[in-house]
């Protein structure tokens, strides 16, 4: 009986041996792995993974941590603030607070805005630039080709770093699409001319100029630049929402502009209201 079985399986013996050997190796390894898993186990708060699931997963770094996982760890282990995730916004803060049984005040939703309107038609160039198409590099060559030493160079360094493609180059000037902006602030650091600011989303009136030059100089280089006429400051005297910083009018973003007539009255038309203009 055994002999017959042996004769039948004889030709298959090499296969059987191989299968047996592989199976043994497989079991051996899994056993070793099981032991290793037991011995080297790291106790991890399961909530970290779950908080990480709640986060948007953009890994944008706006919270100041290396990524979503890092922030999740900080939230659970180190009691980090719950409102630091800009892409998640107020909703996420509420969700996190509920999940962790804490209370947290939602941070104000902010969006990036480019404080320049110096499009190709409006702003003059001083020279023909030939080199790397990158703002940081262009800024170092002769101070940039825009005649205005404050204005947007238009080589889209901000658009390149934007993780959500919220920045578009329109007529040589960067423009942020607020609905796409997750206020991570990467563009703010990318701009060599510091033209991009994070502002509260609720503010809709902006002065899109950063030139601190005197009016005549501004007028020489750009038709859309703030000439420092102070008209907007005077028109908003009571509410004090606009102030002069040198020769440049600026919005006080802690307040909201009530007298929106300044948008119409501004001589170079460098004040916009996003509820109308967009």
């Amino acid at each position: 009986m055994i002999e017959t079985v042996l004769t039948i399986i004889e030709p298959y013996l090499p296969i059987i041996k191989t299968v047996f050997a592989i199976t043994c190796i497989g079991f051996g390894c899994s056993f070793a792995l099981a032991i290793a898993a037991k011995f080297f186990e790291v106790k991890d708060d399961p909530r970290i993974g779950e908080v990480n699931e709640l986060l948007p997963g953009a890994n944008c770094g706006a919270c100041g941590y290396a990524g979503c996982m890092d922030y999740a760890k900080a939230v659970v282990m180190d009691d980090a603030e719950l409102n630091r995730c800009a892409p998640g916004g107020a909703d996420l803060t509420a969700t996190l607070a509920e999940y962790l049984g804490k209370t947290a005040e939602a941070a104000e939703k902010q969006v990036a805005i480019v404080l320049c309107m110096g499009t190709n038609d409006a702003a003059k160039c001083r020279f023909e630039y030939n080199g790397i198409a990158d703002c940081r590099a262009a800024h170092l060559v002769g101070g940039g080709d825009k005649a205005c030493t404050y204005g947007c160079l238009g080589y889209s360094s901000c658009a390149t770093v934007c993780p959500t493609q919220a920045i578009e180059m329109v007529d040589g000037v960067a423009k942020v699409h607020p609905e796409l902006c997750i206020s991570c602030g990467k563009c703010v650091t990318a701009c060599p001319r510091n033209l991009i600011k994070l502002v509260p989303e609720k503010n809709t009136v902006h002065i899109l100029c950063s030139s601190n030059d005197k009016g005549p100089i501004v007028r020489k280089v750009c038709t859309k630049g703030c000439i420092g006429c102070t008209m907007c400051v005077k028109l908003t005297k009571e509410e004090e929402s606009v102030f002069m910083d040198g020769f440049l009018a600026k919005i006080d973003y802690s307040k909201e502009v009530q007298n929106k007539v300044i948008v119409e009255k501004c001589p170079p038309k460098c004040i916009i209201d996003t509820t109308i203009n967009n």
């Binding site: 003059k124 160039c125 020279f127 023909e128 030939n130 080199g131 590099a137 060559v141 002769g142």
Partner: peptide, 12 residues
């Protein structure tokens, strides 16, 4: 852009 001839500027 102005019509006048602009000089070319680049890095060395």
């Amino acid at each position: 852009m102005s019509e006048e001839q602009l000089y070319s500027v680049s890095s060395s």
